[in-house]
């Protein structure tokens, strides 16, 4: 167990170092940091001095180490666009993105898994066919189009829900939440649905496929032959087995949700990191981009680690036996 976690941790660190390297190259060599900091009229000598002071003339390896050291402390330099520390800007935007992503992920799971189970168990039913047809729309329509459609219907035509922004937020320390106010919750509905829809249909189709697969296995046939009630066979045995591979994909999808949030945030002008990064790209705001890259990578790695541990907890075949007895006789 401990060896397993350690191995996964080492792998995670390796991934973060690689992404850090890319972020560093971006930060250091795309555009000239000094040019971005000084005015037009700064003399060449002053620029050289500044370059020295910033450590930009040091060996690349030393600069990289320094970059990583700062990054670990959340210090990514100063945004060219806002002239403020990047860490600060991101910390402001992070809660909006995370709340949106987590709500969307929960929505995708809460709807996708039961629908997948239902359509898997009632393969030929009318409702299953309808859901499957609807899910095709979900996977094939681009996110921005879904967002715009929802805005047209629920904001413009019906006027029920706001089409942009996050509504009123409440500060809990440095974290701002929209989950505690009516306008915050209302504002969350459309973007969360937009962001969740693709993952929801994906999860549903995946769960359905896995259920169909598992329902064909011998151990399910044998469970029925043992006379177990349908409920126990379908949910105790079939669903649990179907969810083992689903955990992995769903975990990766959670990471994808955070990344996909860019589009949804742009459509709904949601004040999160996605919206921020789109602006940063427009301004060639390299420090913000580097920080965003590392943060998203961090989320992916963290989610992966959690998924691995979950997988390990669910599937006894992964737990390596110590002590005799295994495979005996």
């Amino acid at each position: 167990m401990i060896a397993f976690i350690l191995r996964r941790l080492v792998q995670s660190v390796a991934v973060m170092l690689t992404v850090g390297c890319i972020a560093f190259l971006l930060f250091r060599y795309v555009g000239d940091p000094v040019n971005n900091m000084v005015g037009q009229d700064t003399s060449l000598a002053d620029r050289a001095l500044l370059r020295q002071q910033l450590g930009l003339t040091d060996p690349a390896a030393l600069q990289f180490a320094r970059f990583l050291g700062r990054a670990a402390k959340g210090d990514f330099g100063v945004s060219y666009q806002y002239a403020r520390p990047v860490g600060e800007i991101i910390a402001e935007r992070l809660p909006a993105t995370l709340e949106l992503s987590i709500v969307a992920a929960l929505l995708a799971l809460a709807v996708g898994v039961p629908m997948g189970v239902y359509t898997g168990l009632h393969r030929t039913g009318l409702l299953s066919r309808l859901v499957m047809a609807f899910s095709l729309i979900g996977v094939s329509l681009p996110t921005f189009l879904i967002g715009i459609l929802l805005i047209v219907v629920f904001s413009v035509e019906l006027g029920w829900l706001p089409s942009f922004g996050r509504g009123a937020v409440v500060a809990l320390g440095w974290w701002t939440t929209g989950l505690l106010t009516a306008s915050g919750l209302k504002s969350l509905i459309l973007p969360a649905i937009t962001l969740a829809l693709f993952q929801m249909t994906l999860i549903m189709r995946l769960v359905r496929a896995e259920m169909l697969e598992v329902l064909r296995t011998d151990y399910i046939k044998f469970a029925r032959a043992r006379g177990l009630p349908n409920r126990l066979v379908n949910f105790g045995h079939a669903l649990k087995n179907a969810l083992v591979p689903v955990i992995t994909i769903t975990g990766l999808q959670l990471g994808a949700i955070i990344a996909f949030a860019i589009i949804t945030e742009t459509v709904f002008q949601w004040p999160g990191m996605g919206f921020l990064i789109v602006q940063a790209i427009g301004f060639a705001d390299i420090p913000v981009m580097a920080a965003y890259l590392m943060l998203v990578a961090f989320f992916f790695v963290a989610i992966n680690l959690i998924v691995d541990l979950l997988y390990y907890a669910v599937d006894p075949r992964l737990r390596i036996e110590r002590g005799g007895g295994a495979y005996g006789l």
Binding site: T217, D218, Y219, F222, A223, H237, K240, N241, V244, V314, D315, P316, R317
Partner: peptide
């Protein structure tokens, strides 16, 4: 393959 791999 007759036994459910996830249960003892």
């Amino acid at each position: 393959t007759s036994l459910d791999p996830l249960y003892t």
